[in-house]
């Protein structure tokens, strides 16, 4: 990186602009594919009445929900990484996804689908409150203790879900849905709600981008740089929790996105929050729309695959490849 050049002329900036263009192109391409392909073949430019309604009432909201969910999860993962000062943190390690899934499943079994969102939010906040109580020491958040507390909350919530699964054998399908994820229940209202959460949290991060980067330092360095570290961590945690809860309530647990999207961007050399936040949003959206497109179209006759299973399988395989082939880069990142 040419360190002696002015910022506007730095090759890094040009690279970032190029990558931004590339990401927009990718997003547009995948959006086009996702809109034009599905269980039912649609001639996008010559639609009959049924086709038009399928497109507008079923496919479009679903593609949009998938996109915003991907963006939300990537963003949540990124924020959790700043909180934990660890590039391998995501919604999973804070116990956020498991506790919101627990809330969703409880609501589903006891009350019905209407209460799933508030219950998921409640579950996440309760889970995070537990993590917080354990990891707080005189107003400070201790990242390592927090990782541990997150794993405990995660294990506990998963165990309770397993218990519920066991007790409610016949409702297994709908519980399993929350564990495997899917975008069938897309509505424009949900898309709007999630989009609001995504844009608000992204804006929050963008406005504080340099401070976000400073949270990666040890506490003393960050604090003595004038960063309100503990407040920032709490807010990032809250933003991540909100994003996780909303996406879990709408689409279940979808693994690996929060981990893999920021990781790939970092491997590609994009390291600063000012770049990672918008790129993560775009890349996460593209990734998830593609995953859902595959989930909708891989099987014949309109059969579907659970999208969470797909992302975890693909993501897991890809991560294994990275671990085997590019150990060095990964090691140096962490």
């Amino acid at each position: 990186m040419g360190s002696s050049l002015a910022p506007r002329l730095r090759p890094g900036n040009r690279r970032e602009l190029l990558a931004l263009g590339g990401l927009f192109l990718l997003l547009g391409l995948i959006f086009g594919l996702a809109i034009s392909h599905g269980a039912v073949p649609l001639e996008i430019f010559h639609l009959d009445e049924t086709g038009r309604r399928i497109l507008l009432e079923v496919r479009l909201p679903r593609v949009l929900l998938a996109g915003f969910t991907g963006a939300a999860l990537a963003l949540a993962g990124l924020y959790f990484q700043y909180v934990m000062q660890n590039p391998l943190a995501d919604a999973f390690t804070t116990g956020a996804s498991a506790s919101s899934a627990l809330g969703a499943v409880l609501a589903l079994l006891l009350a019905g689908e209407k209460l799933v969102l508030p219950a998921a939010l409640g579950g996440t906040l309760l889970g995070l409150l537990a993590v917080f109580r354990i990891a707080s020491l005189r107003g400070r958040l201790l990242p390592v203790t927090m990782l541990l507390a997150g794993i405990v909350v995660n294990t506990f919530a998963s165990a309770v879900i397993s218990l519920l699964k066991f007790l409610a054998e016949d409702s297994l399908a709908s519980i399993v849905f929350w564990l495997m994820g899917g975008f069938q229940n897309a509505t424009y209202a949900r898309v709007g709600f999630l989009a609001g959460a995504v844009f608000a949290s992204a804006l929050y991060g963008l406005l504080r981008a340099p401070a976000l980067d400073l949270t990666a330092f040890d506490d003393e360095t960050a604090l003595s740089s004038g960063v309100p570290l503990y407040r920032l961590r709490r807010e990032l945690l809250l933003a991540g929790a909100l994003l996780t809860a909303v996406s879990v309530a709408f689409s279940g647990i979808i693994g690996f996105v929060g981990l893999i999207v920021p990781h790939l961007l970092r491997l590609a050399g994009f390291l600063r929050a000012g770049v990672l936040v918008p790129f993560g949003l775009l890349f996460g959206a593209a990734f998830m729309m593609l995953a859902d497109l595959l989930a909708r179209t891989l099987l014949p006759q309109g059969q579907e695959l659970p999208v969470g299973v797909l992302t975890s399988t693909l993501g897991g395989l890809f991560f294994l490849y990275l671990l085997l082939k590019r150990k060095r880069e990964l090691y140096e990142l962490a």
Partner: peptide
């Protein structure tokens, strides 16, 4: 203030690490 045993949990380039001193 330069504390003892400063560390960095996320990956950043050297140039940027020095730049953040001006936060």
């Amino acid at each position: 203030y330069l504390p003892q045993g400063g560390h960095l949990g996320l990956p950043f380039e050297v140039f940027y690490v020095v730049l953040t001193g001006r936060y």
